[in-house]
Amino acid sequence: MVVQSPVAVSTRKTRAVAVGIPSVDLSLDRSMVSDLIIQASQNYGFFKVINHGVPRVTISRLEDEGVGFFDRPAPDLQHAEPAGSFGYGSRNIGLNGDKGELEYLLLPTDPFYVVETSKTISNEPQNFSGAANGYIKAVRELASEVLDLAAEGLRVHDKYVFSKLIKDAQNDSVLRFNHYPPLKTTKPKPCKDEDNDDEVGFGEHSDPQILTILRSNNVAGLQISLPDGLWIPVPPDPSQFYVIIGDALRVLTNGRFTSVRHRAIANSSRVSRISIMYFGAPPLNATISPLPELVSPGNPSLFKPFTWGDYKKAAYSSRLGDCRLDHFKASFNQ
């Protein structure tokens, strides 16, 4: 069943007393779960999964390794900053001037690469690689199960049409740790009608991949945007996972699913916030286009076909907040 978790919300644009985050219990009847995933994906592009089957020890082992990594002295962290887009980073998000109050560690999900890079990440690389590879395997299976349930709910012919993309041997999935240390100084709050760009943890964006599996420790900070533009906080739940629909899945479903826009505010608590994201992505040469079953004369294709590699290049060359799918939308002669 979908359980709405009430939260109080107040923004400078809109106010709401109680807004719920969908929570899907994976232990229920399969057809019921499938329908609930469809509802949440259409209405929110975001939901929590409970009774997910991932052992608590798998989660805690990787979080402990992540905490241990970010607790290391700054010179040691720089050793995990190889050339290219993977490795350690701080404040600078991408190559386009986007900044946030965080530091992060980005890794591919290939188990052999994890083993090799663990030598620069941890003083006990076998512990780190074992924890990371065990976690990646578990959340990839969780992501695949959610995608299969979604395909069943959409009544498409091949229920593995989505999950086989992230299970492909050449998949482009990544694992990311975000660490939001407490703000060192207390800055004056902005005026009522002003934004404070200096206190952004991670700016507004949608995930370009197919699906994101996210979890964090028990420190708040994540917010999602509703279709009407209202930003609502997501209550942290360290024992559960949140599912975020990505741009690629929005295209594959011909716009039926929403790729939710989300952000993280700067950490004003006294405790560090750490979140771990598995970004499930297809191979670079995979073609992304609406499934034929979801296209009809009355519901024409909303997007032109493109490869994941092309879209990834467009996504990472744009600034946070840009609408990257505009370039790939189909045009219609009226």
Rank of each mutant, 00 (worst) to 15 (best):
F202E: 00
N254A: 07
Q223T: 05
N299K: 12
Y113M: 11
F177P: 01
N333I: 14
P282V: 09
K99R: 14
R176C: 09
K164E: 13
G97P: 06
A314S: 14
T109D: 00
N123W: 07
L325Y: 04
P182Y: 07
A281I: 04
V243G: 00
S10H: 13
F177D: 02
F177N: 02
F177T: 04
I210M: 15
E152M: 14
S331A: 10
D195H: 11
P227W: 11
W308L: 04
V260K: 01
I288M: 02
N127L: 12
R61H: 14
E145K: 13
R324V: 14
L252E: 01
S259T: 10
V271Y: 09
M1E: 10
S122E: 04
G84D: 06
F46D: 01
K13A: 11
H79W: 00
L142E: 02
E63V: 12
I274M: 15
F47P: 01
S275C: 05
L211I: 15
H157M: 10
R263S: 03
E293T: 08
M32I: 13
S268M: 09
L226A: 03
I210W: 02
F112N: 11
A8G: 10
L302R: 14
E194C: 13
S5W: 03
L230S: 04
V17E: 13
T186Y: 05
N267R: 06
R250E: 15
E293W: 07
L291K: 06
N133V: 09
H157K: 15
E124N: 12
A138R: 02
S317F: 04
V19Y: 02
I210P: 01
C323I: 10
K167G: 07
D76R: 13
V271T: 14
P236F: 06
E145D: 08
P82F: 07
K164L: 02
R263E: 03
Q170C: 09
D168N: 15
N254K: 06
S331F: 05
P111G: 02
P236D: 06
N333A: 12
R270M: 10
T185P: 00
D198N: 05
V234W: 07
D64T: 13
V9Y: 05
S289C: 11
V295E: 01
V24T: 05
P283H: 10
V67E: 11
G201H: 00
A143C: 08
V54I: 15
E145I: 01
A169R: 14
H52F: 06
L62T: 05
V161Y: 00
A286Q: 15
A138Y: 02
S34L: 07
E141A: 11
G94I: 03
N178S: 11
P282N: 09
P290D: 04
T109L: 01
K13D: 11
V146P: 00
L147H: 05
G100V: 07
P305M: 07
W308K: 00
P82E: 05
G255A: 02
F46V: 06
A150L: 13
D197R: 08
S118W: 00
S90K: 15
N127C: 06
H179C: 15
F128T: 00
N43V: 03
Q42W: 01
V156T: 02
